[in-house]
Design a protein around this nucleic acid. Structure first.
Lengths: 245, 245
DNA sequence: GCAAAAGTGTTGTCCTTACACCCATGC
DNA sequence: GCATGGGTGTAAGGACAACACTTTTGC
């Protein structure tokens, strides 16, 4: 756009044929890659699949796909998520584009990374081909392409995000105990938090609904279960300041 | 990537020819657009240029260009910045990609927005063709393409960014008074701040160097001039928590 | 009764906010 | 001397961090 700056008078050679202009543009293959975080066994996990490129045989890669003609990037990311996990209508956010010319062994491919959080137990993986599985984030290595870099960046993004917005709830079951919530924050942020202060913090935010149920089948005193008050959060989103620890 | 999930045994049809695979991918034209913010007359401004598309005759657009073959997105953005302002080695950050299929009248073009802050007086615009000029952000309208949306998003990004990192300094001359600094923050955040508290805040951050000079030619008591301590900031970047008002 | 985690309050410290007066300079 | 902004301190309130004991349940 506005590509050539003339050194003559302005408005003398406006481009009339926008289509022709665009057709002359160089084109690049474009993909989306989804970094889908989950939480299980007190560990942050990410959905990975064995690469189907011989070049990366045995290495894990992210779930990704080509962006189709006339498909929005967001759409493409939602499509990948739906196709691979059966889930729609979840949180999904663009993180950034990765464009290193040599990031794909088959030639230049630019990818846009998307981040998503979901509850592992809420959706069983239907397809296990290519070893699709939840991999602990902290032990990931040797990924295909630049996918490790993408995961790292998305992880940083997630750490920042859950302190500014209560997105962590997307990783938990509908009903959860305060301990589960705290475990989640501790695992993602890599810190340990004072239990009493943690509970006070969330109590004062007034985003938890006490549903008058207790944990079942735990080998210790059961805790109360809560739901997240999505409605209230949506209402006050604009005024939202953040969660500090 | 990892496009097709087979429903047969894994590892049976790994893709051998990565190049062929990529060549079969659909391709899209890709551009970068730079949202270059400046600060002048106590107003936040953005660098715009008249669109050279007849379709958008008279409308302003951002500075943008095609991403060249084998050019990284960051590189492309730096190139645009250099070509249009003569400036290199300034702060520049990717904000996000915009991909609406109808965002360009000539067909599908995906663009990646970059944000940059620079000191208006430090670099005179060398080329004034197509009415290249600094436009007050608050009075922008009727921009070409989806550029208004891009500017809006970058403005939000900037508001957030200058509260987390002392990037505002990039908008000021090397030497500046505390009042100038405060004006900058007030203009960008759209709030008014208590002068004493503002000064205390920055004093406690210890990022300003008193250079023992005073303002000249001001119609009132001159204030002290400061420089920003870039070195110190870079050192402590990792521990950086933020600037809250 | 023992292990394991749930649940609960107080205090000190620090940070943030609100607020008013005198000072230096240009005109 | 008057207008304009520069420069400074303090007190109150709110948020955060540190900290220990009792309760409930499963085994």
């Amino acid at each position: 756009m506005t590509k050539k700056i003339s050194n003559e008078k302005p408005h003398e050679h406006l481009i009339k044929d926008a289509k022709k202009l665009v057709q002359a543009y160089p084109k690049v293959p474009l993909t989306v890659d989804c970094v889908i975080f989950g939480f299980e066994e007190n560990k942050l996990k990410v959905l990975v699949i064995k690469s189907d490129l011989e070049y990366y045989q045995g290495h894990y890669s992210l779930l990704g796909d080509i962006v189709k003609d006339n498909e929005e990037l967001d759409q493409a990311a939602y499509r990948v998520l739906k196709e691979r996990t059966g889930m729609n209508d979840v949180f999904l956010d663009q993180v950034r584009a990765f464009s290193h010319p040599a990031r794909h062994p088959g030639g230049r491919v630019i990818t846009v990374a998307y981040c998503s959080l979901l509850n592992i137990n809420h959706h069983e993986l239907k397809i296990h081909d290519n070893d699709l599985n939840w991999h602990t984030v902290s032990t990931l290595k040797d990924m295909a392409f630049d996918h490790k870099e993408i995961v790292d960046e998305c992880y940083s993004w997630l750490q920042k995000m859950i302190q500014e917005h209560p997105l962590g709830f997307n990783l938990l079951p509908e009903k959860f105990s305060l301990r589960e919530l705290q475990n989640l924050y501790e695992a993602i942020l890599g810190v340990s938090l004072d239990r009493r202060n943690f509970r006070k913090k969330f109590a004062s935010m007034d985003l938890l609904v006490d549903i008058n149920e207790m944990e079942q089948d735990v080998p210790h005193r059961p805790g109360k279960l809560y739901k997240f008050n999505f409605e209230k959060y949506e209402k006050n989103k604009r005024k939202w300041i953040g969660i500090d620890f």
